[in-house]
Design a protein around this nucleic acid. Structure first.
Lengths: 194, 194
DNA sequence: CCTACCGATCGGTAGG
DNA sequence: CCTACCGATCGGTAGG
């Protein structure tokens, strides 16, 4: 019981931070706010974390990792590009759904990371985007997709996926498979040759 | 010459703020940073503005106004829903293109507005979104668009429009009509019946 | 538009 | 995990 019910302090700090950063933004959330939410003194936070930015770092890179993990099956698959793309979209939506608060922080506050971590973050994100670029490129070469600008399309695709965190409430029972399916349908229809 | 070359201080402050808020976010930009950029003492800012939030207020509501102005022709038009939607999209993209910095602030930092202005902002935004909802609803009833969830579709639509500010550089000569056309093509193709 | 300055709050440390 | 506290910085005002 202890293990599942009593979260360790560090987890507790991170989860409270995810929620507060999402609500007010990283810069506008103070360590005092955060400590108060947890019910300890501000200075006590530093027994568990090194700095405010470390929390942001933890959140951003954990989500990045989730994205890579979730898309792994797709990258090794040999299916056609449209099927792969749909699967990649559903995976992406699933990560957002399962980490709505953390994703919001990842999405909105990553720029408050400082170097060298910032560059690391940016290149991880680019790497992830490249997986999608690759799928689209492949579909283009196979003639499955109409001619289009890949970079532009990928960014449009992500932008229509990434707002979804507004939609998912922790209590919500919306189905990522359904939403991802609808979304990729809406997108693929405009992208499929015929 | 004086009128066009020498901007009054208030304009200068607002423009510098748009750029800095966009770059670092509203909360992370200090009035001292802002004053330094302009080359005056921090206290001197207050001869021209009442508060930091007033600047944010000015930016956000000016952009809101631009959006309403730009879509006016569309709302009074009697064309079919798909044509109206495309025009609305192009107008929207045009506003973003002509106000990239200010739009970024409008889009990312509106939540730092405080009441009662915050509620006013939210309802203005809803009103604008309702114009798009209306067009889609109409196209739905006319059978031009496939059956779909209007609210979901409008949000997806906006999300794929609103990331465009990352794209537009002040020096850039990208054509909003082209981009808006492409985008609405990509979207409409998935939305048109057949 | 400046000098001088306010009280509040910031992230964080020392030392226990 | 707390008390006590640091220097830095915040938005903003008084008064000229």
């Amino acid at each position: 019981m202890a293990d599942t019910v009593t979260k360790d302090r560090k987890t507790q700090i991170t989860e409270a931070a995810q929620n507060m950063f999402r609500e007010k933004g990283y810069s506008a959330t103070s360590m005092r706010d955060l400590a108060a939410r947890i019910g300890i003194e501000p200075a006590s936070l530093y027994s568990h974390i090194r700095s405010k930015e470390e929390i942001l770092h933890t959140i951003c890179f954990r989500i990045a990792e989730e994205f890579f993990k979730s898309i792994k099956d797709v990258t090794t698959s040999t299916e056609s590009a449209d099927i792969k793309l749909e699967k990649a979209i559903v995976s992406h939506v699933e990560v957002i759904k399962n980490n709505a608060d953390a994703f919001a922080v990842f999405y909105n506050d990553w720029r408050h990371l400082s170097e060298p971590v910032l560059s690391e973050f940016i290149s991880a994100r680019r790497e992830y985007e490249n997986i999608f670029r690759g799928i689209i490129q492949e579909g283009l070469e196979d003639g499955i997709f109409k001619p289009m600008d890949v970079k532009f399309t990928v960014l449009t695709l992500f932008s229509s996926l990434n707002w979804l965190y507004h939609w998912f409430k922790p209590s919500g029972k919306m189905n990522p498979k359904e939403i991802g399916g609808n979304l990729s349908n809406m997108i693929l229809y405009g992208m499929m040759n015929k």
